[in-house]
Computed example of a mutant assay.
Amino acid sequence: MRKNSNKIWIWIAALILSFSTLYGQKINQIAQIVGIRDNSLVGYGLVIGLNGTGDKSGSKFTMQSIANMLESVNVKLSANDIKSKNVAAVMVTASLPPFARQGDKLDILVSSIGDAKSINGGTLVMTPLTGVDGNIYALAQGNITLGESGGTLSGKILGGASVEREITYNLYNQESATLSLKSSDLQNAIKIQQSLNDVFRDAIAVAVDARTIKLKKPENLSMVEFLALVEEVEIDYSRKERIVIDEKSGTIVAGVGITIDPVVVTHGDITIKISDEMPDDPEAIKLEDGTMMSRAQGTISSTNGTKPTVSSVVKALQRMGATPRNVISILESMKKSGALNADIEVM
């Protein structure tokens, strides 16, 4: 029976490869299996070995924590008698990946919560990390490495926590599973349903809403084999256009093909006209992508008869002296007017 199962698995894998030439996105890129996810862990601890840059003696919770730590090694001392500046109270966070086993190592983030000047060069003493249920799942300890951002009040310890408790998930013996789309979309849910049913030649998938697809395991495959094949199936994924703007740095990320319909926008002392006609200004500037910009007329137009793209409009606005805040406001106004069909996300 197992031999026949292997043959069926090979046949399905070959069929998936043939479908790969027809579709654009793998299912594991746009959906996740419900229940198989990371779990957040958090703990309170102490960083020691600081060269006078730790919490001041006025931080009562830090001094009390030091007293409690010393008492655990049979040194009894009142918190009021502790004047050390070489210790800092910190919060420790980590993510416990699915199927993590005892002894596995986790990266942790250590962040000061007191009035320490720096935790650079410090050592985190053993800190229990708990989940939302209050159980201890890992123990953290180690030397802190500060990040590249130059901050001195938080840092990482790579492999700084060891898993002590496992989260059980009996995947192998499951008969059904659920896919959850990362973005709700009725069309994509139906496409996944149709693609999976075509690949496995059976009604193993049912889209129950815009985000959820119920799966039923075929008899001749284990759940692990089944889900491994499901994740590799590709579909013609419909993705909404999005513009991402980092207001602080002025960075704007947008798809190459996002266009803007003809519109006139006035923002402060900036007036811009998006047109599909060539400007009659002899001093119009030709940008790198062929878009023409007329400073005198405040017009941006494409030379090949197509609509100007977001990229060309942003470049033109920057040449006009627009600030990142101006660009954000103008793009948002274009979206509200219906001239720009894309979601805008400001970071």
Rank of each mutant, 00 (worst) to 15 (best):
Q174H: 02
F19K: 14
G58A: 08
L287W: 03
K76A: 04
R295Y: 13
S337T: 11
A339F: 01
S154C: 07
A94M: 08
V327M: 11
L22F: 14
A14E: 14
R319C: 06
V92N: 06
S333V: 06
G142P: 02
Q141N: 00
T291W: 03
T266N: 12
L331V: 04
D55P: 04
E148W: 04
D107V: 09
G134S: 03
A322D: 01
L50V: 06
E332T: 14
P98Q: 08
L196W: 09
N341I: 15
D81G: 03
G298Q: 02
A284I: 08
N173A: 11
G268T: 03
Y169S: 01
S311N: 11
S78I: 02
I167P: 05
D81W: 00
G122C: 02
S184T: 08
I213E: 13
E225C: 05
T21C: 10
N143F: 01
Y237P: 04
A316T: 07
E332R: 09
F19H: 08
V132M: 08
L171N: 03
G268V: 00
P218I: 01
S311I: 10
V264H: 13
E277S: 12
L50D: 14
T271G: 05
I16V: 15
E332S: 11
N28I: 09
G338A: 10
A13R: 15
S5I: 04
I10A: 15
R295K: 14
Q193D: 06
G298V: 04
Y172F: 11
I119L: 11
E225W: 00
G338E: 10
V208I: 13
I252M: 12
N68K: 12
I10W: 12
M320I: 05
V313P: 05
N304C: 07
S65K: 08
T303N: 00
G45S: 04
S329M: 10
A13D: 14
D55I: 06
A254F: 13
L196I: 15
K248I: 12
A67E: 14
L186G: 01
I190S: 10
V265W: 11
K240R: 11
I108L: 00
G250P: 12
I16D: 03
S72Y: 04
V265R: 05
D246W: 09
L215I: 15
N304P: 06
R325I: 02
T266G: 01
P308V: 00
G257I: 11
L139Q: 02
E232N: 00
I190V: 14
P97S: 14
L22K: 13
S162A: 04
Q25H: 07
R211W: 03
L106E: 01
R2N: 07
Y169V: 05
I235L: 03
I12R: 10
L221D: 15
V327G: 07
L221N: 15
A203Y: 12
L15M: 06
A322F: 03
G159Q: 07
K240D: 14
V73N: 11
S118H: 10
V224F: 01
L179Y: 10
F99W: 08
V313L: 09
Y23R: 09
A316W: 06
E219Q: 10
E345F: 12
G114M: 05
G131R: 01
V75C: 00
V208T: 12
A89V: 00
G321M: 05
V314F: 02
K3A: 13
D281M: 07
I213A: 07
V73S: 15
E164S: 00
N120G: 13
